[in-house]
């Protein structure tokens, strides 16, 4: 087995496959199962200050080449969800707390609480494409984003990751802005805004009408984003979007990612997907005479 270890800022990962936010992270049991299935790190679902039920169903459908969802950021609120994180305190696998809010003050409160409950890093969801006042609406406001990141950095000592959307025109500028505000890594990408209309009724199927597209179809979009950021901004990148096989992950490493996150592939290949992908990465590295992952990162532009 080649060395699959990787580091992102202060986090040491035994392997580069992380669980993406919002998938199989409802509670301690589901996150524990993903750890047992080989995930190198866990990102929690995005948590806000107060309980939120999210949108009515249909919230998730599977299309030919990907998955479309508009969950609407359902979560029980940080104080309740904190117990699920605390229950994982014995695990050696890094737990990254994903948080969302509409302003810097609430983001800071959430980040402090995440650190208190034992999270090893926080991931700022400023990229959810379908939640009014949150996510992408926050991420599209450069000065607000800078204020949020700087305020959090002043208040907590664990690393701060910022998850960005592919639905922005000035990607590199935003990434530079995030780096300048002292964030520790960029996570790219969140889902791509999309819609599906039912032909018989003429209605959008998702209750929220628009949603976010993930899975196989969005991989080229994610690869492009990671590549553009890596070439222009000196900051660790975690690649997400459509990773289903080891070769998909290799492509992200070549584009410049130091680790990857996996979501929709749990639908395509089951929770064991983390083990499968690690094995496939290992096989590929050996076949191509790489001794570790670091040699590969950024191969596409170095």
């Amino acid at each position: 087995m080649t060395d699959l270890a990787t580091t992102i800022s202060a986090l040491q990962l035994k392997n580069p496959t992380m669980l993406a936010s919002g998938i199989m992270d409802e509670d301690v049991g589901s996150m524990q199962r993903m750890i047992d299935c080989g995930a190198g790190a866990i990102v929690t679902k995005s948590i806000g200050l107060h309980p939120r039920e999210g949108y009515l169903n249909p919230t998730v459908i599977e299309l030919e080449y990907g998955i479309l969802n508009a969950m609407g950021l359902p979560n029980p609120g940080i104080d309740i969800y904190g117990k699920e994180i605390k229950a994982l305190e014995k695990t050696k696998i890094p737990i990254i707390g994903s948080i969302f809010a509409a302003n810097a003050k609430d983001f800071v409160t959430l980040a402090i609480k995440m650190q208190h409950f034992g999270a090893n890093a926080v991931e700022l969801n400023v990229s959810c494409p379908h939640a009014k006042h949150y996510g992408l609406e926050v991420g599209s406001d450069a000065s607000l984003l800078r204020e949020i990141i700087s305020s959090i950095k002043h208040q907590i000592h664990i690393p701060v990751f910022v998850k960005i959307s592919p639905n922005i025109m000035n990607l590199v500028e935003v990434a530079q802005n995030i780096k300048n505000a002292q964030a520790d890594a960029i996570v790219a990408i969140n889902t791509v805004k999309g819609m599906k209309i039912d032909l018989e009724t003429g209605q959008p199927i998702l209750a929220n009408k628009t949603g976010g597209y993930s899975g196989k179809a969005i991989k080229p979009i994610g690869i492009r984003c990671v590549y553009d950021i890596a070439q222009n901004v000196d900051i660790p990148i975690i690649g997400v979007g459509g990773i289903t096989t080891g070769e998909d992950a290799i492509e992200y490493f070549m584009a410049g990612a130091s680790a990857v996150q996996i979501g929709s592939a749990i639908y395509y290949r089951g929770p064991e997907v983390f083990k499968h992908i690690c094995k496939e990465i290992d096989l590929w590295l050996r076949k191509h005479n790489y001794k570790n992952l670091y040699e590969l990162i950024g191969a596409a532009y170095l």
Binding site: I23, G29, S30, K45, N57, T59, M71, S264
Partner: peptide, 18 residues
């Protein structure tokens, strides 16, 4: 309570992620 019914969102989990 079910949302995706596809084994993806985690909403319906019991025990150790069943």
């Amino acid at each position: 309570y079910m949302k995706c019914a596809l084994g993806l969102c985690g909403q319906c989990c019991i025990g150790k992620g069943l």
